[in-house]
Each structure stands twice: as C-alpha cells, then as structure tokens.
Design a protein around this nucleic acid. Structure first.
Lengths: 235, 235
DNA sequence: TGTGGTCTGTGGTACAACCAGAGCCAGAAC
DNA sequence: GTTCTGGCTCTGGTTGTACCACAGACCACA
C-alpha cells in the first residue's frame, strides 16, 4: 500500500489563497472595498489574527492596499505589485501568460546571466568548478522536470554567488519562483537533456576562462529560448 | 513652541532591528545558533508573538534560517538573501557600499530603463505624456533630495507601467528602496536640477517617439552615473 | 537488540484583549 | 445660525496567551 503524505494548510494560507484567487480571477475588481477584518473573521469563522495576518500577506504581494483605520481595497496589482506578485500570478493556474510576458522574463534572465558570466570568468577557482560540476551531475540525474529546473536554478545562483558580485545573487534569488516555473516548462517540452547540455557547454567555457565564448553561449541559448521556443508558453 | 511628531516603533520592529543590526555588524556570525524564541521573549521582556513574528521577518529578509522545532541560525545572507536583504543592507548606516555594488545596481537600472524605453516609444499616448509631464513638474518643484528621488522613481515606474509590459513594472517596484537611496545620494551631490534635466530630455524624446535618441539619452546619463560619478558612493 | 511509549522542549498557529486614530455627531459656546 | 469641542464608535495595529504537532532523548520491556 502506498501512503500519501498528509499536510494541513493553515487557516491563514487558506484565507490568502481564497482572496488572492478572487482578485486574480476578477471576481473582486480593482478598487473594490473589502469587508472589514471583523466581518471577514465572523463570516469565515476564524479569528481576526488570521484575517489580519492574511491581509498583510496580500498587501506584501501587492494585491490590496490597506489604509489603517479605514479599510482595505483591491489594488491595481500590475502597478503596485512586485516580484511576489509575479510569483503568485505565475502559480495561479487560470492565468495564461502571453508571449510578451515570457519574453520579458527571459530577457531579464539573459541580462543577469551575462553579468554573471562576465565576472566569474575572471576569477573562477578549482573549488568553484568542483561545486558547479557536481550540480551539473545532479541536474543530469534529475528524474522530473521540476527537480531539474530546481537544480538548474541552483547552478545559476551558485554561479552568481561565486562571481563575487554582492547585488546579482540577491536579485537572482528574488526571481527564483518565476524562473524555475519557466525552466520546468522548458524541460517538459524539450527534455532535461537539452537544458543540461546548454549548462555543460557554458561550464566548459567558464572552466577555460573564455569570456567571449561563454557570452556567446549564453546569448545563443537564451535567444533560442526567446525567439524560437516561445510558442510553448502560449498555452 | 514647535512640537515634533512622536512615533512609537512597535516591539516587533525594535526586535527585528536589534537582531538585524547585530547580524550585519558581524556581532552575530554566520552559522551561529540563535537563542530559542522563549529565551528571547524572557530575556528581552516581550511576548513570544513579538519574537516569532520578528524572526519570520528576518527569515523573509534572508538573514536567518529557521528550522522548525530545532532553532534558528544566522544565514549567509549574500547567498540566501533577496531584494529585501539588499534594501536592509542599504538602509544600514554602518555599511560602506563598494563601487562594484553601486555599479551593479546602476547597470541593472540601465538595462531596465532601456527595456522600458523601447516599448513605450511605440505606444505612448497624450494621456501618458500628460501624467509624465506633471510628474516632471513635481520633480522640479521638490524641495529635498529625498522628495525628488521619490518622484523620480515614480516617474520611472509610471513609464514602465505605461509601456504595456506586465513584468517590468513588477520588477522595478521590487528595486524601489535601493534605487531611491541611490538617486537621493545623487541629488544631494549634484543637485536636483541635474536629475530633472536628464528626465526631461528623455521625456522629450519619448514625446517625439524617437526610440533611437531616447535610448542614447538613457545610455548617456546612466553611463555617466556609472563611469564618472561613482566616487560619491564610496563613502 | 529493538520496539514502542513517554516526556521535554521546539517552532507553528490561532485566539482574545487592548491600543491609538479616523470619522461622525450631539451639544455647548459664541 | 455657526463653530468647534468632546466623546462615541468602528477601524486596523499590536501584543500576550494558549494550545498544537513534531523532533529527540530516554526508558521499560518483549
């Protein structure tokens, strides 16, 4: 008998998901005034803490605006939102990401990757190559696209961390969820092997301290993603 | 008699600031195990809610790692951190940002600004120009560098929002605090007028739908910031 | 030897109570 | 009639408290 794991979501998370879905789906419209915390608490049969904490989370994600002692309204989240909003939008099953959105994310990633490559080629050590090589091995051995995408992200983040730049790894970490989602879809469509090969080639150029080829390699496979393979994200 | 405003910071914020400063200053070292929540609560004479909530905030900022039912340890925040960490680091008075860090942030900004300019020149409307023009006016009328920097950020964010791209404004919003800090320092050194003129010129090119000149304008003043004016950030 | 029970201490969660401020309005002051 | 003061009510903000599940150590016993 195969037993599945049981997990009990917290009331707070349930509350956040309920309201967030209502906002993304359009059931709650931009500018609409939300019930007060006490009304939420009473009607949903939870304590005010759950509601207060949940509304604050929704504020962090850019979905609502809270005016102390006045109330909360649904925000224009493309305007007020941030990276967390993007993550939430990408995880929302119902939303269809357009070609243009995916293009933007990939262009940002291309830019970040080039910044990293420029810096790491100048200073890469044997220790760095050792760690990165092991990640490549793990990536190749990954069984599911999700697992492979996660390791690919770690590979990228490790590159950034070891590039010596302070800012870039912090920025990259913020884009974690959206980027993993995109690479997961990429692997599902084209197979893990393709992604591993791209990274392995980049690794080889970095090992040779060959900035020019490494840059060309990044530009090549990111442009390929951007220009040629966008149709898979249209679903 | 002139009365100054009184504001009472919450216990939670005080707690977060205390621990965060200890981590950034190096008083608490990476890998060091923190006291338990109950120990914190007892010794600092606050309730566990304050400590629990504060530790979670520190986790969000990438400064600690919480292992449920085991304890919390100080994280390698350049590795685990995100945009929030960057914001916290920049707001920490004691830290000296290196030329390289500032260069990274400005390069990211340059890239983002170019993405925005490309898109908005194709689709800018009279309504857009109206709103942007008003912001320019407010920027010129700003009395303090802080105020001017805030409006400059709004101008940039408004540009991104009206460019029609969904991702870029979300990304820009995430970089809000660091970018404002940098522009504030820029204004303090060179005066508000300089910044306003840069933005006004960009505005004019956008109004003319002149992508090439607008791009050149951005590259010009961002490179000037990056290459020439970095010494002001070394303090 | 190892299995399962129990106890202790941890962070996770939820609830209740109190706080300060915004808005409204009756009624005093003029 | 107008102004404005003081208090009342409702809001979100904050904090103290209670209970939960789980990790780990320990132990009794088969």
């Amino acid at each position: 008998m195969k037993l599945e794991q049981l997990t009990a979501p917290s009331l707070r998370d349930l509350f956040v998901k309920t309201i967030q879905d209502a906002i993304i789906s359009g059931e709650l419209k931009i500018g609409e005034v939300l019930p007060t915390e006490r009304e939420f608490a009473e009607q949903m049969n939870v304590s005010r803490s759950v509601v207060n904490s949940g509304l604050n989370e929704l504020k962090n994600r850019g979905f609502i605006e809270i005016k102390p002692r006045k109330g909360a309204v649904v925000a224009d989240y493309i305007y007020t939102g941030n990276i967390n909003t993007l993550t939430a939008l990408m995880e929302y099953r119902g939303i269809a990401f357009t070609k243009e959105s995916v293009r933007s994310i990939l262009e940002i990633r291309k830019f970040a990757e080039l910044m990293v490559v420029d810096r790491i080629c100048e200073r890469v050590t044997e220790d760095d190559l050792d760690v990165l090589g092991k990640l490549l091995g793990e990536m190749a051995a990954a069984k599911t696209p999700k697992e492979a995408a996660l390791i690919a992200f770690e590979f990228w983040h490790e590159l950034a961390y070891r590039s010596g730049d302070i800012i870039v790894p912090l920025g990259i970490q913020s884009f974690k969820a959206p980027v993993i989602t995109l690479w997961e879809r990429y692997c599902t469509k084209y197979g893990i092997h393709e992604m591993v090969e791209n990274n392995r080639q980049l690794y080889d150029y970095i090992a040779d301290r060959d900035v020019v080829s490494a840059r060309a390699c990044v530009i090549d496979y990111m442009d390929k993603s951007i220009e040629g393979d966008l149709e898979i994200y249209d679903t």
